[in-house]
Simulated assay, not measured.
Amino acid sequence: MLDDADRRILRQFQAAPDLAAADLAARAGVTPSTLTRRLDRMRAAGVLRAVRGQVNWAALGYEVEVSLRVTLDKTQPRAFDEFMAAAREVPEVIEIQTFLGVVDARLSVIARDLAHYQQLYRDRILTLPHIADIEALMHVALLKSDEALPL
């Protein structure tokens, strides 16, 4: 589906998505019109989903990030749907992942400090429906965060 020029474009785009089209085209070794045409084609094919801003939560005062591994009460037929709907309503839950296995979901929660996290945990997280078990993992350091593919 992708040829060498597409892969060069994607490599450069992943490395510097905020570059001007002319600069990106030069780095990828294509003309600006070729770049635009190929990016449009990759967007239409679903290869490129979006260009997004990445927010540094710590710079906005959110110093604590906790990963919560949640096991749901599977005896309830709507447990999964009701839990997910309620978890989406908590603004400090910035990511929800689902799994097959013992752990059903992982929530990534941000808080300003430990006191704020404790309040969130008691008032918003523990009140989510159908939780059978929950395990908290405090983030200490982010060692790698990369969505780029090795193209």
Rank of each mutant, 00 (worst) to 15 (best):
D73L: 11
A15F: 02
D40E: 15
I125T: 10
S67G: 08
R88M: 04
A105Q: 01
S67K: 07
G101R: 04
A115E: 13
R27G: 09
T71K: 13
L35S: 00
R52H: 15
A105K: 03
A50M: 12
A50K: 13
Y121N: 12
R38K: 10
F83Y: 11
F99L: 01
I125P: 06
T36V: 09
S108Q: 14
R27K: 15
D123L: 15
F99W: 01
P91A: 06
G101P: 02
L48Q: 09
E63Q: 15
A58Y: 07
V55R: 13
L19E: 07
A21P: 04
E63S: 14
D73G: 03
L100W: 13
R38T: 00
Q14W: 11
F13T: 07
V55T: 12
L107M: 03
A45L: 14
D104S: 05
V64M: 11
V109E: 00
W57Q: 14
D73I: 05
R49Q: 10
P129Y: 03
R112E: 11
A5S: 13
G53N: 15
V66E: 05
E82W: 07
D73N: 13
A59S: 15
E82Y: 10
A22L: 08
F99V: 00
Q54T: 14
R11K: 13
T75K: 10
E92Y: 02
T34V: 13
A58I: 09
E92Q: 12
A26W: 03
V66Q: 04
I9P: 06
L107Y: 01
A59P: 07
F83D: 03
A79M: 05
Y62L: 04
E82C: 04
R78T: 13
D113Y: 06
T36I: 03
D113V: 06
A15Y: 02
R52L: 15
D104R: 09
Q76P: 02
D104L: 02
R27C: 08
I94S: 10
L100F: 14
E95W: 07
A87W: 04
R49V: 09
Q119R: 15
H116S: 06
H116R: 00
D40F: 08
T75Q: 10
